[in-house]
Amino acid sequence: MTKVLVVDDEPNIVLSLEFLMQQAGFEVMTAEDGETALTRVAETRPDLVLLDISLPGIGGFDVLERLRADPDLARLPVIMLTAHGREVEREKGLALGADDYVTKPFSTRELVERVKALLGEAGQEGAS
């Protein structure tokens, strides 16, 4: 079963994302800060990470950087979530190797489609 890790410090947002991903048929893990997120990734090897940028402790960008630095995780699909609507951050995220970038508040349908699209590509790669 495809595993998705949801990382956000707002419990209600985590709750909604968890519900959405479960409904889309994924197994969902959650984390409320960067440190926990990295541990979860190492423990459970998710297929995709939904990563909020402003996290207490290690921030979202730092988490992304560390993931990309690890050869095993370099290709792990990551979708950045942010409440900052600034273009600069979007670019920074993409430059650091984020696969997609979603601004809060987001359309739930669109988010699910993007997740599926990313996983589809990854899945195909994984299948080949």
């Binding site: 707002e10 947002i13 909604s16 994302l17 409440a83 900052h84 809060k104 508040p105 739930t108």
Partner: peptide
């Protein structure tokens, strides 16, 4: 302004997400 927008977006995100969830499910 950035701070305010960030702070406003956060509850708004939850509201929209759950409203859409309630609509779609």
């Amino acid at each position: 302004v950035a701070m305010v927008s960030h702070e406003l977006r956060t509850p708004l995100t939850s509201i929209r997400a759950f409203a859409e969830i309630l609509r779609d499910h």
